[in-house]
Write a protein that binds this DNA or RNA. Structure first.
Ligand SMILES: [Mn+2]
Ligand SMILES: [Mn+2]
Ligand SMILES: [Zn+2]
Ligand SMILES: [Zn+2]
Lengths: 138, 138
DNA sequence: TACAAGGTTGTAATTATTACAAAATGCAAA
DNA sequence: TTTGCATTTTGTAATAATTACAACCTTGTA
């Protein structure tokens, strides 16, 4: 496990460098969390998870790292909560479902692009949010 | 115009009473604005529009009225801005398009319901947001 | 006229996020 | 090695949208 992690960290390091991002410890750990835990976390959720193992981590680092990744196209911002921003490591076209009972966010891997109608406007980006009761809660 | 307005106000009054809402002057004016100007305003946008003609209006009244209307099912909250809440007097199923150039929000009157896929979850509510360049800006 | 219920107002508090400057870190030249 | 510089991290302060709250107004009724 430890060895695996170290190898994995090397891969993340390579990937960050490719994107022109210097691979600091904090950035690697944040990226690692996002790939390992596909929970579409907010900055605060991520901070609370990591602070246990990284006692000096600051919220500012989490926010700035997430924004950096998003601006480099490595993350997607999703707004399924209404106001608060959550982040998705999977930048492919897909929809999201949020259970209003347990709060969990699920991926729905169907491209909305093909389903949605043509309009007189030029559509560049599409976001589809579904709400209801998840398979576990019903 | 003046006479029309007065008649119109009476209709709004009736409608509010039907919904169990006492038809105060502020509530009538806010409802009037929402039906007359279909711009999906935020609380702040609405406040700035009305404060000119209603100098004593407070933001708190705007927020609480919009929330009251929304909770009674007379308005829909829409989150096309990411961070800030906008309100839609049209509670029917339809999608929204936001122009990233001029900022205007357009309705797209196609029911998403029929287009979107079935899932293993029970979907109760659906929101579709499209972003791009509007017909006026391109 | 007096009272009670509900509505409005202004201010303070809260929440999520960004701005900013000081401290820490990493790296490369001397 | 040390020194110096650029970058990153950190903590705190500022901002923006929204909600909480208490005092003040209105309105309808006895
Ligand atoms: Mn996703
Ligand atoms: Mn609409
Ligand atoms: Zn659930
Ligand atoms: Zn436009």
């Amino acid at each position: 496990m430890k060895r695996e992690n170290r190898i994995y960290a090397e891969e993340i390091k390579k990937l960050l460098i490719e994107k022109g991002i210097s691979p600091s410890y904090q950035r690697i750990r944040i990226f690692d969390f996002l790939t390992t835990n596909r929970i579409h976390p907010s900055a605060e959720m991520l901070y609370l998870q990591l602070i246990g193992e990284m006692p000096t981590l600051s919220r500012t680092t989490v926010y700035s790292t997430l924004n950096l990744f998003a601006d480099k196209g490595m993350l997607k911002r999703i707004f399924i909560e209404g106001t608060l921003v959550r982040f998705d490591i999977d930048t492919s076209d897909h929809m999201h479902f949020k259970c209003t009972k347990c709060g969990e966010v699920f991926d729905i891997f169907k491209s909305a692009k093909k389903l949605l109608p043509k309009t007189e406007h030029k559509v560049i980006n599409e976001e589809v949010y579904l709400y209801g009761i998840c398979k576990n809660c019903k």
